[in-house]
Design a protein around this nucleic acid. Structure first.
Lengths: 194, 194
DNA sequence: GGAAGCTCTTGTCATAGGACAAGAATCCGG
DNA sequence: CCGGATTCTTGTCCTATGACAAGAGCTTCC
């Protein structure tokens, strides 16, 4: 029926899933596109879907009490875009998820996810692994926030996500690093000297 | 065979699990005790178990490049003590988990967990919920680290885990908050004035 | 194609928190 | 129950970063 879409094989590898399993899984995902500045998820709503990014850049951010927004993550090709707590605990989110560029993504909803999760063992193994991987990343970032000075955190970000810089404003990078755009500008000036 | 232990009903509620399911689940957990200062997990090892605390206090911490240790969490009665990435991704951990007091816990190993996870639907639902809950907590803490001043983070900790203060040194609390013990001491002095 | 916004840089000044050191208080372990 | 080790506080001085403001260079969009 639905032709197995090429991109999703990057996520669901034939090494880990049988042909029949892939035939169950892939058709549950639908291709959706977002225009630059579109919201995938808005504060106060409950996440009904999650996405794998095929093309484009996405940012998630939280708004603090002072009305400033704090970048919490950046996403691009191959990444999963999901608000774990909102999607799984079924409660309204505190975050916003917004397309930084035009994007194309593969989307699945909660019910269909649940169905696959409970019926296909390697699907739930992979899902759990992905979640634990996000947890691990977040924890490393938290520790880095305490132990590393801003300059090092910036350098690390550049190494790990060099393509980010091309698509994200310095203001947005700064809040991700936990500093102001002013400080980031000075840090960049420093680093440029070297 | 094994009498259903009372404490674990606090974790696995008869509302969510059938009697037969509980009969499968509970015997897989064994009661273990730790003496003050014992390690539940040491840096470099791979987590083979996780625990539910019945009595006592536990702390996890990471050691940074400068050799300073940074508290990452505190645990007490009813909490799950688990290094998610190490336990599930089966890789060596960067953290240490240590008993702050004598403790009694309920322990399960990886193989037995897997068996229950893949065979009992509400067990994996609950497991996933617990993991997502940890993720949520960690994310809120990360955001708070960026948006809230140390004083507020300390106040919040006191509200949320008042019993901690009785069992943890200020040094250990300070690193959890991302500040030095000196600063924490001054913050406490300030707050005492009010 | 120009007015209105952005983004980024830079300057000045303010401040939270760090580094280091020393003393007081408290907690062990033999 | 003593002596050494911690823990906690406090002082002085220092540094990274923030707050605010202004200007330069862009987008953008009617």
């Amino acid at each position: 029926m639905t032709d197995t879409p090429h991109f999703l094989h990057r996520i669901f590898s034939p090494d880990r899933f049988s042909r029949e399993q892939l035939q169950q899984i892939l058709p549950q995902y639908t291709r959706v596109t977002f225009s630059k500045h579109d919201y995938l998820l808005k504060e106060g709503r409950t996440a009904q879907h999650y996405w794998f990014v095929e093309h484009g850049f996405v940012r998630s951010y939280a708004v603090d009490t002072g009305g400033n927004d704090i970048s919490t993550n950046f996403y691009t090709t191959g990444n999963i875009v999901i608000d774990w707590p909102s999607f799984f605990l079924r409660h309204p989110t505190r975050e916003n998820i917004q397309a930084l560029t035009d994007c194309s993504c593969w989307q699945i909803g909660y019910e269909r996810f649940q169905q696959l999760f409970h019926s296909i063992e390697p699907y739930r193994e992979q899902g759990r692994t992905t979640l634990v991987g996000s947890y691990f990343e977040l924890k490393n970032r938290s520790i880095s926030m305490i132990t590393d000075p801003a300059r090092d955190r910036y350098r690390k970000l550049l190494e790990e996500k060099p393509h980010i810089l091309q698509n994200v404003s310095l203001k947005q990078i700064a809040t991700y690093l936990g500093i102001t755009d002013t400080s980031l500008s000075r840090i960049r000036k420093e680093l440029a000297k070297e």
